[in-house]
Amino acid sequence: MKGGSLFKPAILIVGVYLFLKFALPLFTAPLPASLIFLYLALTTTGIVIFATLSGQSTEAFFGPITRFLSGEGLAGGMKTARLLVLVLFPLLVGWQTYSSTAPSEQPPAENRTVHPAPPGEFVGLSNPIPNTPDNVMAGKGLYAAFCSPCHGGNFDGKGMAAKGFNPPPANFSDPTTIAMLQESYLFWRIKKGGVGLSIEGMPWKSAMPRWEVELKDEQIWKIIMGEYDGAHQKPRTWE
């Protein structure tokens, strides 16, 4: 079974690739292509080291490759396969070179952090306004007047003034927005607006007003209550 020494590594590499590409993402996030490539390179290195531990295994491993490449004693399908490999390899290298040197036609990719960390003074503040039906109602009224043009009467980010903005106004009914944030975070975002964001939040793109210019802190806290209630979400807490 000397040829088997090449067959087994091939199966191993294919198996590792299929595992990384399809099986692992069932439990983790999909792996980036560069990481898969790294793992496959490690696997290949391991196989080569293992195969070259002794002179005999080296011959068993490299023998078939050597004969395949030199074309010694090949016939039929294998002859065609060899020709194919010899033609495809330079083409693949050429294609790879082209795609890595060709100038990019795409605008720069933007990795905007949607919820960057707030400044220290806004961490852990609790809402000083009692959560009473009256206050929630008042908050909803303020929301309707000041926030709903963009964030929408249905708290879904689809207000009539929303569509020209990039990034779009937040959709509060989406469980990945206010439901995963604390009230103090919303207080910061409403009070300081888009221009209050840190650099990873790309403050130059945000249309969110700096409401501290027009609203009192008390009104902002009420708006936060009205927002959670209207969007049927609960603030995140740490208990």
């Binding site: 079974m1 000397k2 040829g3 088997g4 090449l6 067959f7 091939a10 590499i13 294919v14 690739y17 292509a33 898969i36 490539f37 496959l40 023998g63 078939p64 004969r67 395949f68 004693g73 090949l74 399908g77 294998m78 065609t80 396969a81 490999v85 495809l88 693949l92 294609w95 790879q96």
Partner: peptide, 26 residues
Amino acid sequence: KMLVRLKPWSIGIIGACLVSGFLAPR
């Protein structure tokens, strides 16, 4: 003289893996 036992289909699989690695979404 050793026989080469590499079957054409196994070469196909190796080739497909190589190509799919290069074709991975960017």
